[in-house]
Design a protein around this nucleic acid. Structure first.
Lengths: 109, 109
DNA sequence: ACCAGATATAGACAGGCGTCGATATGTCGG
DNA sequence: CCGACATATCGACGCCTGTCTATATCTGGT
């Protein structure tokens, strides 16, 4: 999907007009959030009691195949929204609040 | 694109896990923001001195055809992010801050 | 009435993306 | 070592979406 790490790129879109490059970068970021599976993964990671989730535990609740879940986790990790922690053969993920904050800030206020 | 009016649908994704339906609705909303042309239209509307923009004035700056611009304006209007004001043969648009606030709230805090 | 301007609609095309099954890679336990 | 488990990668398929040209619709002025 051509995912890039989400970085602060511009003033809130309520403040001033975006350049072509800025709008492209922001659009890429929002595209990461534009899939229901990824949003659920993100919310499940945040809602987890321990603050982290294991990839294998997500396949059943999401009703998607293991490769599909793995794919979406990679997209979220590439964007910096999830931090991957490999422990032996298991992959654990925890959310990175600062990345979400970047997008929230881009929406104004 | 199956665009629906953006409405408050759920607690911030930082607070609790999303249901399948909630994640689908949120994903639809973010999909509207996942295109650079639409983000620019939105920011141009907000940055306009008078607080509104005319469709015809957006074709040249965006470098897209008139039908393409018209299409994206419709998507934004269907989502409720822009309010359409038809004046004779001209179409004027003004941003609706509350819709953006809904998405900002969904990102937490 | 007519013409020019502004916008919307229709249809077509290409590229992108989510999804899957099959398979590879890597890891732990016995 | 070897088998079971966890995850990643590959290749393919189908749908969705952004884009265009061409055309229709509507409005305002002359």
């Amino acid at each position: 999907m051509e995912v890039r790490r989400i970085e602060p790129c511009c003033a809130p879109i309520t403040d001033e007009a975006l350049s072509a490059e800025q709008s492209q970068e922001l659009a890429r970021a929002f595209k990461v959030l534009s899939d229901p599976v990824r949003l659920r993964l993100l919310s499940l990671a945040t809602a987890a009691p321990t603050g982290e989730i294991r990839a294998a535990d997500l396949v059943a609740p999401l009703g998607r195949s293991q490769p599909t879940v793995s794919h979406h986790l990679s997209v979220l990790a590439d964007a910096g929204l999830l931090l991957r922690d490999q422990r032996g053969r298991e992959a654990w993920f925890r959310p990175v609040q600062e990345r979400l904050a970047v997008l929230r800030a881009a929406l104004g206020e």
